[in-house]
Design a protein around this nucleic acid. Structure first.
Length: 542
RNA sequence: GCCCCCAUAGCUUAAUGGAUAAAGCCCCAGCCUUCUAAGCUGGUAAUCGAGGUUCGAUUCCUCGUGGGGGCACCA
C-alpha cells in the first residue's frame, strides 16, 4: 500500500543521511507515529531522543533538518517540524488520490501484503463443551476469533479456524445420566446438568430410548448440542474450517504416542503411581508453578495429556503458528500448555493464547449469574435474537480482549438504534443512496490534472483511507480486532461531516461531482470490507 | 496465602512511551424545500491514590485501594 512505500522511502532517505553524519554508527529507525488527527499533516515521523545524542543536536533542530531533506521525496508535497521533534509530512494530492484509486477498485487487493507469509496459522476458539447451549461468553471468543481469522487472511496470511469438541471424558457420562433422569421425569444428579434444555431434549427422545444406556443418552444429547452450536455459530456468522472431535483422538489413542515422545525426551517421571510432566522445569516465559499429572494412577490419561496430544496434532497437520482463544477462567492453564509445547521441541513463540476477560451481564441493574449447572444463564441465541448479529459482533469486537465487557441486556434490547454500529452502517447506506441518485447522470472518476485542491473534509477522508491496511496490521500484531472497529468509527466520523458540507452531486460541476463520487466509492468499499472482516453487514438502505 | 486481568467524562469504551487524552450514549442550544436528520454544528464533563524511571507516563516499575477470575490424579 502507498503508505508503506512512502514511509519506506522516507526512512531510507533519513537513515542514509544520518548514519553518515553519525560517523557510520547505526542510527535508530525513525518511528512512524499514528495518524495525527489534530495536526495538519498526513503522516508524522518521530525520532527517539537517544538518536539525537550522537549527532549533538536538539530534537527540534534535527526534525527541521530532516524535514528540509524530505522536501523532494516522491509523493511528499511538504514537510515540517514541530516540537518536541516531530517530522510532519504532507503527501501530495496525487499520492492521496492514487491510494483512493486502490480502495475504490478493490480494498481486498489494496490490503493484501506483498511479502508472502510462508507459514499457516490455526486459530482455535469457542470449543465449548457440548453439554449445554452456548452462552454469551462464547460469543466474545467467537467474535474475536472469527474477526482475527478474516483479518489475517485479508492480509495474505493463511489462517484457518477450528472448534475443538470435547465429546469425551467424565462430563459425557454426567450428561447421559442427567438426560436419562429427565427422561424418567426425575431430577438430574446433584452434580449433573440441571438446565431446562435437557427437559426439551427428553421430549425429543425417540421411542426406543427406554432401553438405552447412559452412554447412548449422552451420544444423543451431544449430537443435538453440537448441532445447535453449529447453528448458533452460523447465525453469528462465524465459520470454522474444522470441528475437531476429541473422541477422534481417543479412538487413535493419540495420547499414547505423545506420551512416548515426551518420555523419550526425558520430560516425564513417575510418582505415587502416576505419570507426571515436569512442566515447572521448562524454560518458558511464564513458568508453571508445579508439575502436572499426565496419566492418573489408575492408568487413565488426564484432560491435559489429551490436550497436549491435540496440540501436537495441530502441528502435525502442518500449522506453524497456533493461537488459542480462552476465557479468563482458563488463564492458569496457559503456563503448563506453553511448557508442553516447549517440551515437545516446538518454538514456544509459535503457540500463543489470547485470554479474553469474561462477559459481565447486567439486567435491570443486577448482575446475572451465569452457571451452567444452575441452568440460569443467557444463551448466545437469546442475545442474538434480542440484539441481532450486527450489533453483537460489533459490540464484542470493539473491545480489547483484556478488558472486562459489561453487557447491559436492557440497554442492548432497548437502544439498539443507538449502537455505534449503526453510525458506521449509515455511512454505507448514505453512499449507496448517493449512487442511486447518480445513476445514469454521473460516473465516478479521479480528478483530472489541474483540478482544484480538495476541500478540507475531502482531504481528511483521503488521508484516513491511507491508514486502512496499517490498521489491519495493528490488529494482527495485537491479536485484537478492536483497532478496526475504532478505525471504522473514525472513518464514519469523517464522512458524515463531509456529507454535510460537501455536496457530491452537482449538475453545474460535473468533474467535481465525478471525483467526489469516486471518493465516496472508496469510502463505501472500505467500510463494507472492514465491516465484513468484523462479521457485520453493510446495508444499502437503512 | 499465591498468580492473572481490569480501573479514563454521569454511562459504555479508545489512545506502538509523545503533540490540545479520542468517540458514542445521556444532558443543554441550534440545523431538514436540495444526494437518507440512524446525520451535522456548538456546549458541559475524565486518566482510582502515593511514590519511582524518563526530556516526556493513561501507557513502564513498586506499594496501596476497589472489582473480576484462577490456583485438582475436573474437563
Amino acid at each position: 500500500m502507498i503508505t508503506d512505500n512512502v514511509r519506506h522511502q522516507v526512512q531510507e532517505r533519513l537513515n542514509r543521511e544520518y548514519s553518515a553524519q553519525a560517523g557510520g554508527q547505526a542510527m535508530p529507525q525513525p518511528q512512524l507515529a499514528p495518524a495525527p488527527a489534530h495536526v495538519e499533516a498526513d503522516m508524522a515521523l518521530s525520532w527517539p531522543l537517544a538518536a539525537c545524542k550522537p549527532l549533538k543536536k536538539n530534537p527540534l533542530a534535527l526534525a527541521e533538518e530532516a524535514a528540509a531533506l524530505l522536501a523532494g521525496a516522491d509523493g511528499v508535497s511538504a514537510a515540517g517540524a514541530s516540537k518536541p521533534g516531530f517530522i510532519n509530512i504532507t503527501l501530495s494530492d496525487k499520492t492521496l488520490w492514487d491510494n483512493l484509486d486502490a480502495c475504490a477498485k478493490s480494498p481486498a487487493e489494496a490490503v493484501r501484503q506483498q511479502e508472502k507469509f510462508s507459514g499457516k496459522l490455526l486459530f482455535e476458539f469457542v470449543s465449548a463443551n457440548p453439554t449445554g447451549p452456548l452462552h454469551v461468553a462464547s460469543g466474545r471468543g467467537a467474535s474475536l476469533g472469527d474477526s482475527l481469522v478474516r483479518i489475517h487472511n485479508a492480509l495474505g496470511i493463511a489462517t484457518d479456524a477450528e472448534y475443538y469438541v470435547n465429546d469425551a471424558g467424565a462430563q459425557t457420562q454426567l450428561l447421559g445420566a442427567s438426560l436419562k433422569a429427565r427422561a424418567a421425569g426425575q431430577e438430574p444428579p446433584e452434580n449433573g446438568y440441571h438446565g431446562d434444555y435437557l427437559k426439551d431434549l427428553a421430549a425429543q427422545l425417540p421411542p426406543e430410548h427406554a432401553g438405552w444406556s447412559e452412554l447412548q443418552y449422552a451420544a444423543f444429547a451431544m449430537d443435538r448440542m453440537l448441532a445447535s452450536h453449529k447453528e448458533d455459530m452460523k447465525s453469528f456468522r462465524v465459520e470454522f474450517k474444522t470441528w475437531f472431535r476429541e473422541s477422534e483422538l481417543h479412538k487413535r489413542q493419540a495420547w499414547k504416542s505423545t506420551l512416548e515422545r515426551m518420555k523419550g525426551l526425558g520430560k516425564v517421571y513417575e510418582k505415587e503411581g502416576a505419570v507426571w510432566f515436569g512442566s515447572s522445569a521448562e524454560d518458558t516465559e511464564e513458568k508453571d508453578d508445579k508439575d502436572r499429572v499426565l496419566v492418573r494412577s489408575d492408568g487413565r490419561p488426564t484432560y491435559f495429556l489429551n490436550d497436549i496430544a491435540y496440540h501436537d496434532d495441530k502441528y502435525a497437520r502442518g500449522y506453524t503458528g497456533l493461537i488459542d482463544i480462552w476465557g479468563a477462567d482458563h488463564h492458569g492453564y496457559v503456563p503448563r500448555m506453553k511448557a508442553a509445547v516447549a517440551a515437545l521441541g516446538k518454538d514456544p513463540d509459535s503457540f500463543r493464547v489470547i485470554i479474553h476477560q469474561l462477559v459481565l451481564l447486567n439486567k435491570a441493574g443486577q448482575a446475572v449469574k451465569m452457571s451452567k449447572r444452575a441452568g440460569e444463564f443467557i444463551t448466545l441465541r437469546e442475545l442474538l435474537e434480542d440484539v441481532g448479529p450486527d450489533a453483537c459482533r460489533f459490540f464484542f469486537a470493539a473491545r480489547t480482549p483484556n478488558s472486562h465487557l459489561n453487557f447491559d441486556i436492557d440497554l442492548a434490547k432497548k437502544k439498539t438504534q443507538e449502537n455505534p454500529v449503526y453510525y458506521v452502517q449509515y455511512v454505507h447506506a448514505r453512499i449507496c443512496s448517493i449512487f442511486r441518485s447518480a445513476q445514469g447522470q454521473f460516473t465516478p472518476a479521479p480528478p483530472k490534472p489541474g483540478a482544484p485542491k480538495p476541500e478540507k473534509q475531502e482531504r481528511l477522508l483521503l488521508s484516513k483511507l491511507l491508514w486502512y491496511q496499517e490498521t489491519l496490521k495493528t490488529c494482527a500484531r495485537d491479536l485484537s480486532p478492536h483497532h478496526l472497529a475504532a478505525y471504522l468509527l473514525e472513518l464514519a466520523g469523517l464522512f458524515h461531516p463531509f456529507y454535510d458540507s460537501c455536496r457530491v452531486l452537482d449538475q453545474s460541476q460535473p468533474e467535481l461531482s465525478a471525483s467526489r463520487l469516486y471518493l465516496c466509492q472508496g469510502v463505501r468499499n472500505v467500510i463494507a470490507h472492514g465491516l465484513d472482516l468484523l462479521g457485520v453487514t453493510a446495508p444499502e438502505q437503512m
